[in-house]
Amino acid sequence: MAGWRMGFAAGNPRLIQALTRIKSYLDYGAFTPIQVAAVAALSGPQDCVTEVREMYRERRDVLIRGLHAAGWDVPSPQGSMFAWAPIPERFAEMGSVDFSKLLLKEAGVAVAPGLGFGEYGEGFVRIGLVENTQRLRQATRAIKTFLNKHGVKQAEAVS
């Protein structure tokens, strides 16, 4: 439903009232069928939640294992649908924007440069778990070849 643009805020009534007032001048709310479908999502069966969570967990494990095998030590995310990866030492000086462009050019993998999230995001890239495990394996293989070419040592054993 990400593209359906349905969200909410809850809590502090003073803040909610302020937001309600300003929005009453700006919009007529989300299209009714989307709001009704959101009710079905919140109040209906929650099995899909478990399935989605498992899907992301599997993707995360595939990505992190693959990157470790490629010699890129990326911490395994405990939440969200992203890995936050420190740029490998070898490329540290070039910064996140140029590193992202190089990775795109040479490995065919697009990531989000950390600088886009603020100055303290420099030195990192964000990798989304937004492709299936087969594509993620393909991505980590390409990254492995890329890192290998640039002289980054590969891990000997994969746990």
Binding site: M1, A2, W4, A37, A40, A41, G44, P45, C48, V52, M55, M81, F82, S100, L104, G108, V109, A110, V111, A112, R126, I127, G128, L129, V130, E131, N132, R135, L136, Q138, A139, A142
Partner: peptide, 18 residues
């Protein structure tokens, strides 16, 4: 063939009942 892991744009479909 670019593998796009840049945007946080979920690829999985909305569950059918929704």
């Amino acid at each position: 063939d670019i593998i796009d892991l840049g945007m946080g744009n979920p690829d999985s479909p909305t569950p059918p009942h929704i």
